[in-house]
């Protein structure tokens, strides 16, 4: 009974593994449906290695099953075995065999290693500086002078070159659908080069443990058509409406609340405040998520966040400001108006 259960269990593991790889290709953070050249190179290599692995696993499993269930007896069943303690041919076979497999794997591996890490960025690539903070992401576009947080917009079918730097500890930039991760190490500039080839929204997340709220350091990459991207860039470059020209009363009051609050010492709003250690809020209202991408950018969520940031993101540096009632609503209205 137990013998059969053993082999059945092993077989079903293999079956589950192979079928699992094929299904569930459209999960938001899957690595199995790559949408960039880098992701596709890695994926193909992964499939290739998986097939070799499956072959080796099959050989080991068959040998194991034959050895345990077919070509052996149980104690007391028969005379004790003649003991073969070695067999040179067999031993050479299972040394040379794996060596050949490794050769087959290492050639495409080395090729992909060099292909995926070009020393110089491809011509016409878009340079973006990614600055990781505990626990949010800052994205700077040197060409268009756009600064944004937690939502990276890039054009489709154009090489992207990310310069990854950290302002505090080690983080790791990872958008599973767009390819492998690259650590963001303080004191060091790491590069990531890829070209997305399908428009869409791809969630990413910090992948190197970076302290209390490591789990809350998420972000999104919006891969857009060149037109959409140009439009977005234009919107981000726009200077926000001056405070004294705001028409909506609540928003105008909110602008005052902001200007008089400690918010200004950390957050920048173009023309209003110059803080730089926290996310730039100049176009906060244009983002879909907030607070390191952990929740949707809705007035309710913004109010909750301002009331008690630590409850949503343990260890967050932003202090609770003690704003309530109308003041809070006005501030939220103002922030959401910053399109």
């Amino acid at each position: 009974m137990s013998r059969r259960a053993f082999s059945l269990g092993a077989m079903s593991i293999l079956a589950a593994f192979l079928s699992g790889c094929a299904s569930n290709r459209e999960l938001p953070m899957t690595t199995l449906a790559p949408k960039s050249d880098l992701g596709q190179w890695i994926y193909h290599l992964f499939i290739e290695v998986t097939l070799w692995d499956a072959l080796i696993l099959a050989i080991v499993l068959i040998a194991f099953i034959l050895a345990v269930f077919i070509f052996s007896t149980r104690v007391g069943e028969a005379a004790p075995p003649k003991s073969a303690a070695s067999d040179l041919k067999l031993e050479i076979a299972w040394t040379v065999g794996p060596a050949l497999v490794i050769l087959m794997i290492s050639v495409p591996t080395v090729r992909t290693v060099f292909r995926s890490q070009p020393r110089v960025a491809p011509a016409d690539s878009l340079h973006i500086r990614v600055i990781a903070h505990q626990w949010w992401w800052e994205f700077q576009y040197p060409d268009s002078k756009v600064i944004t947080a937690n939502e990276l917009h890039i054009p489709v079918n154009r090489p992207i070159r990310l310069d990854l730097v950290s302002s505090d500890v080690i983080h790791s930039f990872w958008v599973p659908q767009l390819g492998g991760k690259r650590d963001v190490v303080p004191g060091q500039i790491n590069e990531l080069t890829f070209e997305a080839n399908v428009p869409g929204m791809y969630p990413g997340q910090c992948a190197e443990f970076c302290g209390d709220s490591h789990a809350n350091m998420r972000f999104r990459v919006m891969v857009e058509t060149p037109e959409q991207f140009a439009e977005w860039t234009k919107l981000q470059q726009a200077v926000p409406v001056a405070v004294d020209q705001i028409t909506d009363a609540s928003v105008a009051d909110g602008a005052k609340v902001f200007a008089d609050s400690p918010c200004t010492s950390c957050h920048r709003i173009d023309g209003v405040s110059k803080g730089y250690i926290a996310p730039d809020l100049t176009h906060f209202g244009s983002r879909t998520t907030m607070a390191g991408g952990i929740m949707a950018n809705t007035p309710d969520n913004v109010a909750k966040w301002i009331t008690d940031p630590q409850a949503l993101k343990p260890g967050a540096l932003m202090p609770p400001l003690g704003l309530r009632g109308q003041q809070l609503n006005d501030l939220v209205a103002y922030l959401e108006s910053l399109k």
Partner: peptide
């Protein structure tokens, strides 16, 4: 063996 292949390891 998969992680040993550096590009796969990145994922």
């Amino acid at each position: 063996i998969m992680h040993a292949s550096a590009p796969i390891d990145l994922q």
